[in-house]
Design a protein around this nucleic acid. Structure first.
Lengths: 207, 207
DNA sequence: CGGAAGATTGAGGTCGATCAAGCTACGTGG
DNA sequence: CCACGTAGCTTGATCGACCTCAATCTTCCG
C-alpha cells in the first residue's frame, strides 16, 4: 500500500478472534485496515435481523475506508484475523496536500464501487445456481492455493453474501458436485476442488 | 459516439430523445455528464436479456464517471433529456496536480458507492413491498415537486431497478393505495401522492 | 467420549414469476 | 372529433424457485 511508506502515517497491527467485531456500523472511523492474515466479513443488518454481507476481505485487501468519518458497515473476523491499522486522521492530514495519496484513496473506492456494481446485478437478477457459481469463481480467483479452494466462511455467511438461504447454498453446491463440476475434499466441506472451471463459468452468465 | 458528431457538443450540452442510448457498457469514457433536465437510466444486461438498473439520474446528478476510462454501464434517456458534457481528458490533465479536483472525483465516487451499498441490502434482503416503499421514498426525496411524485419511468424500469417483475411492482403499488398510504392522480398512473409518509417509511425497514 | 456447531437432505409452504386477459391513456389519421 | 392502434398498467390464475421447518449426519473440540 502506498500509505505504508509514508512516514507521517502511523502503522500498527492487531489480531481479532474468530467471530469478534472489528468495528460497528455508524461508529466513527478511526482506522483503515489491511488484512494481513484471515478473512473479514462486512455487512448491514435490518431491524429484524436479516443480514446482507456486502464483501469478504482476504489477505491483501484494504477495508474500512469511508468518506465522512462514519462506518457504513459492521465488520467481523470470519476466522482469526490479523490486520494492519492506519490512523484515519493521519490520512486526512496529508490528503489535501498530497495528490498521490488522494488518488490511491480514489482507486480503493473505485475498486469497492466496481465490486458493488457487479454484486447488484448478481443480487437483482441471477438465479441461485448462477450466484453460487459466481461466488466460487470469485473466491477461486482471490484465495485458491494449490488447486484447492479453502473457504473460510460458513454456508450461512455465503448465503447472506448471495442473498439466499444457507439451505439453497448447500443444495446448489451438492448439485454442482453431482454434475461433476466440483468435488469436496475428504472430511472438510469447506475444501473444494473446481474440476471444470469452463462449465462453472457457463453457469454464471456474466454479461 | 452519437454526441461526438453533433454540433451542440461544442456548447457542452446535448439533448437525447426518450429511449435513446447515451453510451454503452465497455465503450471508452470520453465524457462526464450532468443532467440538466430529464431522467437517465443506467444498467447492466445479462446475455439472455435480464436487466439490472443500478441507478436513475435526475436533474443535478452527475454520471458517467469511471476510473479506468471504460464505461461499466449502458445509459439511456428515460424521457427526453438534456445533459451537460465535460471532456474526461480535461479532468485527467489536472487530476494529478490538483488535489481539490481529485477530491471532488472522490466525493462523487463515494456518493455512488454509498448508494450501491444501500441498494445491495435492498436487492439481497428486502421483500417486494419493502422495495417499492423504499423506491417511493427515494424518488420522493429526489424529485417531488408540489406534493406530487411524478415518476418519469415505466413499471418495467422500476422493476428492473428493484430486482422484481413489473407485475409485482404494480400489485405492490395497488396494495399501498388500498391501504390509503398513497393515491394516484386522475388519469396518470405515474403521478402519485404520498398520503402517509410515516407508514410508508414503516414498510421500508431501513436498518 | 460427549456436546455443540455446522452441513446436508427431505417435505411442504409461500412469495414472487409467469402466462394471460382486459383496461386506460394517448397519439395518429380520417 | 372520433375511430383505431399501440404502449403501458392492472388484475387474475397458475406455476415454480426459493424459503421454512425439521431430522439426521459430520466435524470439531474440550
Amino acid at each position: 500500500m502506498t500509505a505504508a511508506s509514508n512516514p507521517t502515517v502511523s502503522l500498527s497491527e492487531f489480531t481479532y478472534r474468530r467471530g469478534s467485531e472489528i468495528y460497528g456500523e455508524k461508529e466513527p472511523a478511526e482506522y483503515i485496515y489491511q488484512v494481513k492474515s484471515g478473512t473479514v466479513r462486512s455487512y448491514k443488518l435490518l431491524s429484524d435481523g436479516r443480514r446482507q454481507i456486502n464483501a469478504f476481505h482476504v489477505p491483501g485487501d484494504t477495508f474500512g475506508l469511508t468518506n465522512g468519518g462514519v462506518h457504513r458497515f459492521t465488520t467481523e473476523a470470519v476466522t482469526d484475523t490479523t490486520v494492519r491499522l492506519i490512523r484515519r486522521e493521519s490520512l486526512d492530514a496529508v490528503a489535501g496536500s498530497d495528490g498521490t495519496l488522494t488518488g490511491s484513496l480514489l482507486d480503493m473506492t473505485t475498486t469497492n464501487l466496481r465490486h458493488a456494481e457487479d454484486h447488484m446485478l448478481l443480487l437483482g437478477r441471477k438465479t441461485s445456481l448462477e450466484r453460487v457459481a459466481a461466488f466460487l469463481i470469485e473466491m477461486d480467483r482471490r484465495l485458491t492455493a494449490a488447486g484447492v479452494l479453502a473457504l473460510p466462511m460458513s454456508r450461512r455467511d455465503i448465503a447472506d453474501y448471495l442473498g439466499m438461504t444457507l439451505e439453497i447454498v448447500s443444495r446448489s453446491l451438492s448439485h454442482l458436485r453431482a454434475l461433476g463440476i466440483l468435488g469436496f475434499i475428504d472430511n472438510n466441506q469447506r475444501h473444494i476442488v473446481l474440476l471444470d472451471r469452463q462449465q462453472l463459468t457457463g453457469f454464471d452468465r456474466r454479461n
